[in-house]
Design a binder for these strands. Structure first.
Length: 398
DNA sequence: GAGGCGTGGGC
DNA sequence: TGCCCAAGCCT
């Protein structure tokens, strides 16, 4: 017997009759209490794909307006495949994890160009699409094509960890295949899409991560951790590291043509989006001589009080020099506020001190890959939330 | 396999 | 406030 089969037998002790009863109970509850969500109105694989990608690590109520707007802009897989990247990122602006948008478009291009517009109809085939992993492939295959495969997301991990008291660490990649094999035995082969979505609704209602209510869950009779009083111990999940602090000066230059923004490179955080130029605080405040041995020094992080303090004339001059070397533009920078804008990503925390500069004529951008943004451009552009937050701080400061 | 990758909400 | 969480995938 394979190692996975051993694990399945260890955790899944339900009889065939109990499995049948579970399906019946779950789907009866789902038929009466399932959520009415926009992407549940039909089973178009294009619609399901869009919703599933947007829902990755993102809450339902956040996704709903983006889902409608996205389909308005790109009604078909052909339209998405042909869209300019700039428009794609505009429509995705604010939703986060922007590589999802680029992979989604690549998937659309695969469908149109490689498959002649014909969708793969199995999870294995769908998983070849860019940005489609095991969860999303299972979701589309089961919902759109009725393949009896599990869709193992955070809800499925949590629900089945509690029902079966599975004490495997769900943060470890190898755990997924155990859960998938267990759920494969339980999934309703006649209604796999509804089964998977019912598990998600269960995980979003009675069996939530916090403040769960297993006592009133429709499947409480199948819930071993509820009966044992151990449900708060499941699922087992190791913690991730805290975000690293990074400090930057934000160089907000305004001219008659608007604000100067630069496009982030493809390799850095917020890739391909537009943001005020940033200057690492370490570059201005590191007074040590350059490392002679080629050893990379630890980036310095100023204590909060020092970072908040008004900039000295020397610091402002150094910033002016750095900005001029970068862009060819001479600007006298002002430090109009003692506030720090904080923005937290999954693995980094940015602390930002905003500097402003004003020019009465628009300089040339020959040296610098930047663009002038009017207020309207900022509203509609491919702009990350941190840029909108900075703009809000600037307008409050006026 | 561990780390990179956004944002908003809840307590 | 700081932390965890929310329909993960890619490298």
């Amino acid at each position: 017997m394979s190692a996975i089969a051993v694990q399945v037998n260890h955790y899944l002790t339900w009889s065939p009759a109990k499995i049948k009863a579970f399906r019946q109970t779950l789907l009866t509850w789902y038929d009466q209490n399932g959520r009415d969500l926009p992407w549940r109105r039909n089973q178009e694989p294009y619609h399901i794909l869009i919703s599933e990608i947007m829902l990755q690590q993102t809450q339902v109520q956040t996704v709903i307006p983006y889902y409608h707007n996205f389909l308005q802009h790109f009604p078909t897989v052909q339209a998405l495949a042909a869209a300019p990247e700039e428009e794609l990122l505009q429509v995705w602006s604010g939703l986060g994890y922007y590589s999802r948008a680029r992979h989604l478009q690549q998937a659309a291009q695969q469908i149109v160009q490689d498959y002649g517009g014909v969708w793969p109809q199995t999870a294995a085939g769908l998983a070849d699409l860019s940005g489609v992993g095991p969860y999303t492939a299972g979701a589309i295959a089961s919902i759109s094509f009725k393949e009896a495969v599990p869709a193992v997301d955070g809800n499925a991990f949590r629900v089945f960890a509690r029902l079966l008291e599975i004490d495997l660490d769900i943060a470890k990649p190898q755990t997924r295949s155990i859960f998938a094999a267990i759920i494969q035995q339980i999934i309703d082969p006649d209604r796999p899409g509804d089964f998977n979505q019912a598990i998600m609704d269960l995980g979003a209602s009675y069996l939530t991560a916090k403040n769960s209510d297993p006592a009133h869950s429709p499947v409480r009779d199948f819930d071993a951790s509820w009966q044992a009083g151990t449900y708060e111990d499941y699922p087992v999940k190791t913690k991730k590291a805290k975000p690293v602090v990074q400090q930057y000066y934000v160089l907000a230059l305004h001219t008659p043509s608007g604000w100067l923004l630069s496009q982030r490179s493809s390799r850095e955080l917020l890739a391909r989006l537009w943001l005020f130029p940033l200057l690492a605080v370490a570059k201005i405040n590191d007074t040590k001589p350059a490392a002679s041995s080629g050893v990379t020094e630890q980036p310095i992080v100023l204590p909060p009080a020092a970072f908040k303090k008004a900039l000295t004339t020397i610091q402002l001059q150094k910033i002016q020099v750095e900005f001029q070397e970068l862009t060819g533009i001479a600007v006298v920078w002002r430090d109009p506020t003692l506030k720090i804008v904080k923005h937290v990503f999954t693995h980094r925390q940015w602390q930002l001190k905003i500097l402003t500069g004003e020019l009465t004529t628009t300089p040339s951008l020959a040296l610098f890959p930047g663009k002038w943004f009017t207020e309207a451009d900022l509203t509609n552009g491919a702009i990350p939330t941190v840029q909108r937050k900075i703009m809000q701080e600037l307008s409050q400061n006026n």
